[in-house]
């Protein structure tokens, strides 16, 4: 009996990894062969070169990979292998349960500031295929370590666009330009525009200061992630997300009404910053 108990305890002990030592999901590396593999490759191309490979559905100049680093594989960069297993899920933005395909449509509507590809269109199927392949072996419904962008500590000081501006000049302008409009090379963006007409619109998750701060903290400056303090990440996010950007596609015709309906808190929509009423540009 005692032996049975200790065997059980050992079994439990080995099944529960030590805290902070959770085994991490490893997405596959080699594309599979055949027509399925071709669709995987197509999806990966759309993911990493979105304005070119899905040109009909993109008005901005961002790629999926800009916010989901390393082709959607990078831990703490909202990796796809941790997102796919938890769809369908309730979306507070849509106020309904959405499928993976519908979530992809939302990326086009908001982050790409584009036209929504239909469910069943090749663009959506290619992306669904790529993302599902990346998630092969991930347990359905599991909240995997490395998912999303890690939480930030509450800001000690209110996030400040002015402090963020100074930091931006020091650490972000190198790649994104002092005007935040990115750096082009041969017509393509080597570094994406962070506000203005070619960036994500007011409905995008990244337009919310906390989301942007969480992304920035872990992933920016590119290649030097986790080098800013939480307060610095809040401040840079506040600066970037208090610049003009394309209108929210849910715009009702009035900034005040759209703010009341969709932007009550968490972003700068409808506020006047540096003399500009945000949410007032097309």
């Amino acid at each position: 009996m005692r032996r049975a108990w200790s065997a059980l305890l050992i079994a439990i002990g080995s099944a529960v990894p030590a805290l902070g030592d959770e085994p991490e999901f490893q997405p596959p590396v080699e594309h599979p062969p055949g027509p399925f593999g071709e669709m995987v490759a197509k999806g990966e191309r759309i993911f990493t070169d979105t304005p070119v490979a899905a040109a009909d559905y993109v008005r901005g100049r961002l790629t999926c990979e800009n916010c989901h680093l390393d082709r959607g594989r990078r831990r703490n960069s909202s990796p796809m292998w941790a997102a796919v297993p938890i769809y369908p899920q309730y979306s507070s933005r849509s106020r309904q349960v959405v499928s993976l395909g519908q979530r992809i449509q939302d990326c086009f509507r908001y982050s790409m500031n584009g036209k929504v590809p239909e469910l069943g269109s090749e663009v959506v199927i290619a992306l669904e295929t790529y993302l599902s392949w990346l998630s092969r072996g991930a347990p359905i419904g599991a909240k995997l370590p490395g998912r999303g962008y890690p939480m930030l500590a509450d800001a000690d000081l209110d996030p400040s666009p002015a402090r963020g501006h100074r930091l931006f000049a020091e650490k972000c302008a190198l790649c994104h330009g002092s005007d935040g409009q990115g750096t082009r090379r041969d017509g393509r963006y080597a570094f994406p525009p962070l506000w203005g007409p070619l960036s994500y619109n007011w409905g995008a998750g990244m337009a919310r200061v906390e989301n942007a701060g969480r992304f920035i903290k872990t992933n920016m400056p590119f290649g030097l992630g986790d080098s800013l303090t939480d307060q610095e990440a809040w401040d840079v996010a506040a600066y970037i997300d208090s610049r003009p950007r394309p209108q929210d596609p849910r715009f009702t015709g009035s900034v005040a009404e759209t703010k009341e309906k969709y932007h009550r808190d968490g972003d700068y929509y409808g506020q006047v910053v540096d003399g500009v009423l945000l949410g007032d540009s097309p």
Binding site: D70, R74, R185, D186, F222, G223
Partner: peptide
Amino acid sequence: WSAGVAPCDKCHGSGGAGV
């Protein structure tokens, strides 16, 4: 990325053409 190293081409351009 496992060692926090970004792809060289992301900053130095495709094929190292420079940015």
